[in-house]
């Protein structure tokens, strides 16, 4: 008897929990946006602004690394809009005919910054100032697999400093891990995107890399060709490139 009552107890909880997540009935248009994880904070803010102006629209996000999102789209995951952090992944879904090519636009940019902990007394004002003999661990993204690491390698290859700094490098599996190493003080220096440095109050920016030193860090967006709400998705993408949208993105460290 006990196990039966327990079963019903869990069944009731399950129904209750799923019932709570039912969506807002007053909205009649819902757009599903597959967005790069680095956009999380900026997009949640943009969503609020957008939904205030367009009361019948509900914007829902699926955040993840651009590579994983591209794979999901390839597998037929339902989505109306793809906001990628890398040209490579956007090219991949384009070549598979998954997006409406006419809608493709680079809606924002990011920059590379050299960061250190807020308590650190390191005095540097540019990437060239880094003295390999005077630093401990230097956190960067793994250059073969992590986009931020690839850009970082571009910069130090350009400056001819990669080999000298290599022995100090701790390689993160994503940009947030690089940030964590610096935030916790385990690495003296790190290179992350300006949007990541911006959301952390435990790091300070020492220098910004000249965009000419690395491949451009652009965020391409496009409407999915199988979108259920292509018009609403296009409107939201247009909003990102409008002055209002650009200002919000700038507030979060995007360029």
């Amino acid at each position: 008897m006990k196990s039966i009552s327990q079963f019903f107890f869990f069944a009731v909880i399950l129904i209750f929990v799923t019932g709570c997540t039912s969506k807002d009935e007053t909205k009649d248009v819902e757009i599903m946006v597959s967005a790069a994880a680095s956009l999380t904070d900026a997009l949640n803010n943009l969503k609020n602004v957008y939904e205030e102006n367009n009361e019948n629209v509900l914007v829902t996000f699926n955040f993840g690394s651009s590579g994983k999102l591209a794979t999901q789209l390839e597998q037929g995951a339902p989505s109306d809009l793809f906001l990628s952090a890398s040209v490579k992944d956007m090219d991949k879904v384009t070549s598979l005919g998954l997006i409406n090519e006419a809608s493709k636009v680079n809606f924002t940019r990011n920059a590379l910054v050299l960061i250190t902990h807020t308590d650190s007394d390191l005095q540097m004002t540019s990437f060239e100032d880094i003295d390999p003999d005077n630093i401990g661990h230097f956190a960067v993204g793994e250059p073969e697999s992590v986009p931020v690491g690839r850009y970082t390698k571009d910069v130090f290859d350009h400056l001819g400093m990669w080999n000298a700094l290599k022995s100090h490098m701790v390689m993160g599996s994503d940009v947030r891990q690089v940030l964590t190493h610096v935030e916790m003080g385990n690495a003296d220096l790190g290179v992350v995107y300006s949007s990541d440095a911006f959301i952390s109050d435990k790091v300070k920016v020492l220098a910004e890399a000249d965009p000419a030193w690395h491949a451009p860090i652009v965020y391409p967006g496009a409407v999915i060709s199988e979108a259920k709400q292509p018009q609403a998705a296009q409107d939201f993408l247009d909003f990102l490139t409008s002055d209002e949208g650009k200002n919000v993105l700038k507030e979060y460290g995007f360029k």
Binding site: M169, V170, M171, G172, S173, Q177, N186
Partner: peptide, 8 residues
């Protein structure tokens, strides 16, 4: 990966 980092 978090504690020892990835240092080739």
């Amino acid at each position: 990966l978090m504690l020892a980092g990835y240092i080739p």
